[in-house]
Amino acid sequence: MESNSITVLVDNDSWIIPYARKLVEILREKGLDAAFADSADKVRVGWINFMLGCTRIVDDDVLQRNKHNLVVHESNLPEGRGFAPMAWQILEGKRQIPICLLEASDAVDAGDVWIRDMIALDGTELCDEWRVLQGEKTIQLCLRFVNEYKVLAPLKQEGAPSWYVRRRPVDSRLDIDKSMRDQFNLLRIVDNERYPAYFEVDGQLYTLQIFKARGGDSGA
């Protein structure tokens, strides 16, 4: 390791930003030269570039600035490459969500895997709640890489890949002819602000937001 410089890159206004900044603070407390970057051109030369929640393709010249360029992906790679794997798996009814820390590569989500772990859900978490679990686990994996670097060994992905497509606003549409129970997992993954659940009645669209009742209170 020629440098202890670490960049934490988030190239959009993702919900992951507070967790990325928390990671930077923890790394600094450990005596490491850590910095947050909101665009790829701000990535510094150094040891690690953690790329969290990034949506843009990073040029090779940026990747070459660091010894490791690491991505967090929530699936049992090579299964579940692509977009929004956490949301898609919750929609499928899964309560054990695999999560990987892997090396960025030319092909999407195809790099060597450094760490595999799991996010445990109880089936009641709404979007804000499971994002907390996802964000905290992301920090844990990044810190494990830093702390256990000398004993970790990357493993190549084995098996045929499968893919999740990008979620669109239309994917938050409810079917008024289906029960609430049948669509509960869909309600669990909608973003109340950015991509709220919606439905249509007689040509009129309606949006629907979901929150947990406080203290068991079922009142308004």
Rank of each mutant, 00 (worst) to 15 (best):
E2L: 07
S3V: 03
S14A: 14
I16Q: 05
I17C: 06
P18Y: 06
P18M: 08
V24S: 01
E25F: 09
I26E: 11
I26W: 06
L27Y: 06
L27H: 06
G31K: 06
A37V: 04
A37G: 04
A37T: 02
A40T: 09
V43W: 10
R44W: 04
V45E: 13
W47Y: 02
F50S: 10
M51V: 12
C54M: 05
R56F: 06
V58Y: 13
V58W: 09
V62T: 09
Q64V: 05
Q64S: 12
Q64C: 07
Q64W: 03
N66K: 00
K67N: 13
H68I: 12
V72D: 01
E74P: 07
S75C: 00
E79T: 13
G80N: 02
G80A: 03
R81F: 00
F83Y: 09
P85H: 02
A87Y: 06
Q89I: 04
Q89A: 02
I90M: 07
L91Y: 12
I97A: 03
I99T: 05
L102I: 02
A104M: 10
V108K: 06
A110E: 04
R116S: 03
I119S: 11
G123Q: 11
G123S: 14
C127W: 13
D128H: 12
E129T: 10
R131C: 10
R131S: 03
Q134R: 15
Q134S: 11
E136I: 04
E136H: 13
K137I: 03
L143H: 13
R144I: 09
R144N: 11
V146D: 10
N147G: 12
V151E: 15
V151I: 14
L155W: 07
E158P: 05
A160P: 02
Y164W: 06
V165R: 09
V165S: 14
R167K: 14
R168W: 11
P169I: 09
P169C: 03
L174W: 06
L174S: 02
L174Q: 01
D177Q: 07
D177E: 05
M180F: 11
M180N: 07
M180T: 08
R181E: 15
R181K: 10
R181L: 14
D182E: 15
Q183H: 03
Q183I: 04
F184N: 11
F184R: 12
I189C: 08
N192G: 00
R194F: 11
Y195R: 11
Y195Q: 14
F199R: 00
E200D: 07
Y206S: 08
Y206P: 03
L208P: 02
L208T: 00
Q209T: 10
I210L: 07
F211M: 08
F211S: 15
K212I: 10
G219D: 12
A220D: 11
